[in-house]
Write a protein that binds this DNA or RNA. Structure first.
Lengths: 149, 149
DNA sequence: CAGGCTGGGTTTCCTGAGGGAACCCCAAGG
DNA sequence: CCTTGGGGTTCCCTCAGGAAACCCAGCCTG
């Protein structure tokens, strides 16, 4: 985990990292996303230490990214994505896209994504929400915003 | 940082985290992106320990995300994004988008992005690279790919 | 041409987070 | 009752992060 507290920085990247920047957090989120929603399942899938998994889950719940809820009359719980968390999955998809492109190697990507709307195996692409044309790092200017320091 | 080695996992998210998952790495990348390309600049801007900054920069260079190059006949160096690194900035933009939306608070986002193609202050949106319609976490099915374990 | 200055690190030491394994609690079920 | 299994806690050890001091190679200045 980061020792330094990122949440105080006037930077939305740092603030996002404050929520999912700790080691394992994105992978925990991915597991919940693909349907591994219980402590034992996630622990077994990732091989993460139980202590750390407890910490991560609590942190994600505190930040409103996951919701912890009982699924039995016994004390059994599962973790589900909130809408805030579901939007974080977009980030995971972009991460996966980069990994697919640059680190998949000979074997090719371990998973494929099928877009339900068109039925095609496709990749995610970044577009401008105004004009709809591609919007990548080199296509933009960065300006100070209202919350600038 | 993570003790566990993510690079061996058959997961493109984990493989991406192996490159930029360590604390500070995304912020180092952001700094280089916005033009803080020298050791002293980055160190001063982030307040990161010099030791850790050295490690992160070396790691990013080893992975071909940054390139280290001299800018003087004295032993002075600057770090610049490779194309592999520039594509990672897309990830930073999505991160910033989430932080803007969920954690900016009253003050509003600290920075704005102007899309050069249309001139508008806009946000990045995820689209299907086939059909061009929105492609978010809930719009896709995940299937095993050729590199599946 | 000795001494400073500057950028870019390296070293040292201390603390605390991650890993691993053992332990614990509670509610069924047999 | 005793076991089983999910969901955690506790303990201990090691190693990564933070802070600050130190180092070195070239200009630059007196």
């Amino acid at each position: 985990m980061q020792r330094t507290d990122f949440s105080a920085m006037a930077c939305s990247i740092a603030r996002t990292l404050d929520v999912i920047g700790e080691p394992w957090s994105p992978l925990v989120l991915r597991d919940v996303w693909v349907g591994l929603t219980r402590f034992e399942q996630i622990q077994a899938d990732l091989g993460i230490s139980r202590k750390v998994l407890t910490e991560r889950l609590n942190h994600l719940v505190e930040h409103g990214v996951l919701e912890r809820r009982p699924y039995d009359r016994r004390p059994r719980y599962e973790y589900v994505l909130t809408s805030k968390g579901t939007e974080l999955v977009d980030l995971l998809m972009v991460m996966a896209g980069w990994g697919d492109r640059w680190r998949a190697g000979e074997a090719g990507p371990p998973v494929l994504y099928r877009h339900r709307a068109c039925g095609e195996i496709s990749r995610v692409d970044l577009r401008c929400d105004h004009c709809g044309s591609p919007m990548h790092a080199t296509d933009i200017d960065v300006l100070p915003g209202p919350g600038a320091p």
